[in-house]
Amino acid sequence: MMQANQHYDSGLAYGVTVYWCTIAGAIIVLLGSVLALGLGWTVTPVEQQFTRVLQGQPLALNMQTMSADGVILIGLTLAIVSLVPAIMVSLPNLWRTGYRLVAVFGAANAVLIAAVTAYAFY
């Protein structure tokens, strides 16, 4: 059952990085949800958000980092952006084991995700 392939370690490095960052992101998202629902720490009132969404009205949220909405978004962003370092840590081994073109594909993925993320924040 053990994998003897040399590129196996690259996959493992990618998977483990994403796994723990996603769990960390999930805990931050949970914290944000409890803060929003329990303390109402949101820019737009919680009930108003749900009522408008359920009625099918578009919702232009005034997103601020210092609010429960912002905390949830930070958690989501952490998990999504973790893909970039996860891919990067897996590349040196792929390169060393001779899969250089595949490593180039991987690097292009990371650059593309990082570029779109940076553009979104910009």
Binding site: T42, L61, L76
Partner: peptide, 9 residues
């Protein structure tokens, strides 16, 4: 909508 997305995530 972060509050809507959170439980799904």
């Amino acid at each position: 909508v972060p509050l809507l997305v959170a439980p799904w995530m």
